[in-house]
Simulated assay, not measured.
Amino acid sequence: MTDIFQYRFDGVVHIHLNRPEKKNALSQQMYRELTLALQQAATDDSINVVLLQGTKDCFSAGNDLHDFLGAGALNAEHPTVQFLYELAQFPKPIIAAVAGLAIGIGTTALLHCDLVYAADNARFQLPFTQLGLCPEAGSSVLLPSVVGYQRAAQYLLLGESFTAADALQMGLVNQVVAMDALTELAVQKAIKLAALPAAAVQTSKALLKRTTQQITLESITAELQQFQRLLNSDESQQRIAAFFQR
């Protein structure tokens, strides 16, 4: 049974994370499937928009740490690394529909999405320092550019959680609705966007990202190097071990 489902309609591919027993924590197999889904969507002329969504209680609780720790060095062959670079360079619009928990990569991935809609039960957190780690997915450059340095420092250094209302006020999400209305809203926006001239939309996205994409890719590379260094440290290993014992 797969933990990721895809539905295609009206120029949209709707990708669902569906591992509720693990709060949609991303395994290496899920990263492989997500990367492949993005690669296929990028080259499929019948697809103009990607819509990414979790379950009603959880968008994603971040990495499946057991699986992640067993996947080896963070190099070009690592499924997580491949996904990050694919996401950062994806040429077509990505819409995210976020309900429930969005932790770690569940939040940093949103920084690469073009439109983000959240349910009022959404809760975000970037607990990297609490595990003795550092930001990833280009968030060290993307989050300050979206919410400002002080707020980025609050959430990346202290690892404090924040609500959907906070995310809306900061500009991290476009709109907050009741949980039962989230899918309908996101689907409507995806269909509307997919119906527009694809070349015009993709060119506009490329122009919007032209000044940030290279620095984002460089940031992902730098973050991965530091993430690996910290991950190998005794302090991080102790904090991760304590996390598993909770």
Rank of each mutant, 00 (worst) to 15 (best):
T2K: 15
D3V: 10
Y7M: 11
Y7N: 13
Y7G: 09
R8G: 07
R8L: 08
F9G: 07
I15V: 14
L17H: 10
Q28H: 04
Q28R: 10
Y31M: 12
Y31D: 08
E33Y: 14
T35W: 11
Q39C: 13
Q40P: 06
A41T: 12
A42H: 15
D44R: 07
D44N: 14
S46R: 13
I47L: 12
N48A: 14
V49G: 01
L52G: 04
Q53W: 05
G54Y: 10
K56C: 09
D57S: 15
D57W: 13
F59L: 12
S60H: 13
A61L: 14
G62L: 04
N63K: 04
D64Q: 08
H66K: 10
L74H: 02
N75G: 10
P79T: 05
Y85C: 11
L87E: 03
F90Y: 15
K92A: 00
K92H: 03
P93W: 04
I95H: 15
I95W: 15
I95Y: 15
A96M: 13
A97W: 07
A99I: 05
A99M: 09
L101C: 15
G106V: 01
T108L: 06
L110T: 05
L111F: 09
H112G: 01
V116T: 08
Y117F: 14
A118Q: 01
F124L: 07
Q125K: 15
Q125L: 14
Q125G: 15
F128Y: 14
L131H: 05
L131V: 03
L133P: 01
P135D: 08
E136D: 06
L142C: 02
L143H: 04
S145T: 00
S145V: 00
V146R: 06
V147C: 12
G148E: 06
Q150D: 14
A152E: 05
Q154H: 11
Y155L: 08
L158A: 01
S161C: 13
F162R: 08
F162L: 08
A165S: 11
A167V: 00
L168D: 02
G171V: 04
G171K: 05
N174T: 09
V176P: 00
V177G: 00
D180Y: 07
L182Y: 01
E184S: 13
E184Q: 13
A186T: 05
Q188H: 07
I191T: 09
K192P: 00
L193N: 01
L193C: 03
A194N: 02
A194L: 01
A195T: 02
A195G: 04
L196M: 05
L196R: 02
P197V: 02
V201Q: 04
T212R: 11
T216D: 00
T216H: 01
L217E: 02
I220E: 03
T221Q: 15
T221W: 09
E223G: 09
E223L: 11
L224G: 04
Q225E: 09
F227K: 07
F227M: 09
F227Q: 06
L231I: 02
S236Q: 06
R239F: 04
F243C: 03
Q245M: 12
Q245R: 14
